[in-house]
């Protein structure tokens, strides 16, 4: 046990699973860095250094790929159906556009189309989210698109502890898993055990208990929700925060149970507002916990626009603790 970053937690999970199971390989663009060049190998370890050091330990089981996402994501999927357990990195989630066919028409559907006779134990690790001034093609929150597809599992961790446990679970899982890492969480620190452990999919974490209002959220927004809840506590508004951790499967029971107790719901999602996780949860609660609601549901999301480049605009784009707090206050005061 020790204080580790989100990035270290992921690196540790990869190393532990590669040690445990020789079928686990890691591949992606510049996950080693320097392949074929005259200088040093392992020059990058991924664009943010998450996989640095793995090549030194595991050699040929850590593979740099050409920048051909369709071919190498598809290759990871094909390898998963024929004996390996690849963890493949899609550098930015935005790049799903050039390889989505292999993910949603191939990996997601094999088991069903083939009458239950295929297993595709592949993990696609991918970086998402706004805040790095990376502009519209390197900043999106596209996990709702994956969540829509039957056959895929989708993980969106918010803490180093969860990142390690959920990634090990993903690698041991026999279905295709999309593992979404918010790029501004890599430096987040937290307690992480040294040994391998797993966190089951479909089990949300109640990261703060409260009586007055439920905030359901995920990824980086969990931390902004915590910040908002602390401010609200000063005004006597007691928030419960449910961190989804996985969007497919999704822990519907945890959401409904919390809303049954509090009667008020704010859903916070960094994704664009149409057909996202917030709308999905709002529909769930409207259908299944309508009688418990004391106020309308409020969604706090990014707007219906691409992610802007200028910091002046990007900071307006991303949901803030203040916008979460405002939504919560509105509900707390509703008809009171």
């Amino acid at each position: 046990m020790g204080i580790k970053t989100f990035q270290q937690a992921i690196s540790e999970a990869l190393a532990l699973e590669m040690e445990r199971d020789e079928r686990v390989i890691v591949m992606g663009e510049d996950i080693v860095g320097g392949s074929g060049a005259d200088g040093e190998m392992d020059a990058w370890g991924g664009p943010l250094g998450v996989t640095k050091g793995l090549w030194g330990k595991f050699g040929d089981r850590v593979l740099d790929t050409p920048i051909t996402e369709s071919a190498f994501i598809g290759a990871a999927i094909g390898a998963a159906t024929t004996g390996l357990r690849p963890v493949v990195e899609l550098m930015f989630i935005d790049f799903m556009g050039v390889c989505f066919d292999q993910i949603f028409n191939q990996a997601a559907k094999f088991r069903y189309m083939f009458g239950g006779k295929a297993e595709t134990p592949v993990v696609i690790r991918t970086m998402f989210g706004a805040g790095l001034r990376a502009a519209a093609q390197h900043s999106q929150c596209l996990y709702p698109l994956f969540t829509h597809i039957p056959g895929l599992k989708v993980v969106v961790p918010s803490t180093p502890y969860d990142a390690k446990g959920l990634l090990i679970e993903a690698i041991r899982d026999n279905d295709p898993v999309i593992f979404c890492e918010h790029k501004l969480l890599y430096t987040q620190e937290g307690e992480v055990p040294d040994e391998a452990y797993t966190i089951p999919f479909g089990e949300a974490a109640v990261v703060r208990e409260g009586e007055d209002l439920t905030i359901v959220t995920l990824g980086r927004m969990v931390h902004r929700a915590v910040e908002a809840a602390e401010a609200l506590a000063g005004s006597g508004i007691d928030c419960e925060i449910v961190d989804l951790r996985t969007t497919s499967p999704m822990d519907e029971d945890a959401i409904l149970e919390s809303v049954e107790n509090t009667g008020r719901l704010v859903v916070v999602d960094e994704a664009n507002p149409r057909c996202n996780i917030a709308t999905d949860i709002s529909a769930l609660v409207a259908q299944s916990a309508f009688d418990a609601l004391k106020a309308p549901i409020r969604m706090v999301t990014a707007p219906h626009s691409p992610v802007p480049f200028s910091d002046a605009l990007e900071d307006l784009y991303i949901p803030t603790a203040a916008s979460i707090e405002a939504a919560a206050r509105e509900l707390a005061e509703y008809r009171s």
């Binding site: 369709s70 071919a71 190498f72 994501i73 598809g74 290759a75 990871a76 999927i77 094909g78 390898a79 998963a80 159906t81 024929t82 004996g83 390996l84 690849p86 066919d101 292999q102 028409n105 191939q106 094999f110 189309m113 083939f114 006779k117 295929a118």
Partner: peptide
């Protein structure tokens, strides 16, 4: 498809198979 026979599937997507074949080769 019949994976027990090494048949990874017919494919409804034109050009769907070659990446998967790279994967089988990599394995």
């Amino acid at each position: 498809a019949d994976l027990t026979k090494g048949m990874m599937g017919a494919n409804g997507i034109v050009g769907g198979a070659p990446p998967l074949v790279c994967g089988a080769g990599l394995a």
